[in-house]
């Protein structure tokens, strides 16, 4: 990409119509991979939206009482049940990892290999913690409370089903993200992005923009959690 200077292009809606009317690229200054990740996230948004819409529709139409989530997800702290304690900590962890990812992306822009690598690694550890806590939450629900996908002791049986399905799907996203974060942490430390080493499978040149793309994915996972937190745990 040569002499394209984004600052010289008009911004705002005028810029938009000009970008769309122009040749070559519609999203000016957006790398192919980044554009692809954005569109993928758009598609994934529809996946999660469909899950949540289905959940809300079923929840609205069951006649059995829906369990009260803040009681179901309460944790005993010194004999007192604290509502949603674990969930609050999980939210805290995920937002923390989102912040570290944002910093990793920032240092990626600056081609600061050390800092970028450390923050990617931190993010990965944050994600791993989140997955671990989710595993704890699941096992508590399954073994302690007796919640099953097909039944639960608190009321409408879809509660367990939707809980396991939606958090499971989200957890899968987190886990995939964690795997990639570890891989990319290694790549950053090895200096792949500085030397432009080629990917083993894709034979594509490595570039720091990959960190930004990974960052988009990771923030998206956080974004989805915001919605799950609101609709599933608080609603």
């Amino acid at each position: 990409m040569s002499d394209l200077n984004l600052d010289k292009l008009p911004g705002g809606f005028k810029g938009m119509s000009e970008d769309i009317g122009s040749d070559q690229t519609t999203f000016k200054g957006v790398n192919w991979g980044k554009a692809m990740m954005w569109i993928f996230l758009l598609s994934d948004t529809f996946v999660f939206s469909c899950f949540l819409v289905a959940y809300m529709k079923v929840r609205a139409s069951v006649v059995e009482p829906w369990p009260y989530p803040s009681e179901v997800f309460a944790l005993e702290m010194m004999g007192v049940p604290v509502p949603l304690l674990l969930i609050a900590i999980m939210t805290f962890v995920l937002i923390t990892s989102s912040g570290t990812m944002a910093l990793a992306v920032k240092y990626g822009y600056e081609k600061n290999r050390k800092m970028c690598g450390w923050f990617v690694l931190l993010t990965a550890i944050g994600g791993l913690t989140f997955v671990g806590m989710q595993a704890f939450e699941w096992s508590k629900l399954i073994f302690h409370d007796g919640v099953r996908p097909w039944a639960n002791p608190f009321g409408a049986e879809q509660f367990g089903a939707f809980f396991f399905m939606i958090t499971g799907f989200h957890g899968t996203h987190v886990s995939i993200g964690v795997i990639f974060l570890f891989i990319f942490a290694r790549k950053v430390f090895r200096g792949d992005f500085d030397t432009g080493r080629r990917g083993y499978f894709t034979t594509m040149k490595s570039d720091y923009v990959a960190i930004e793309i990974l960052g988009l994915y990771w923030h998206f996972v956080d974004l989805v959690w915001v919605f799950i937190f609101a609709f599933f745990y608080l609603w």
Binding site: G12, A35, D222
Partner: peptide, 29 residues
């Protein structure tokens, strides 16, 4: 709940995901 949810989502999208700094073509799409 909805207010805080959309505010948080908006902040993440706008700043962490850099949508605020992207050109309108991408944002609108």
């Amino acid at each position: 709940i909805l207010f805080f949810m959309f505010l948080k989502a908006g902040l993440i999208m706008a700043f962490f995901m850099h949508l605020f700094w992207e050109r309108y073509a991408l944002v609108n799409v």
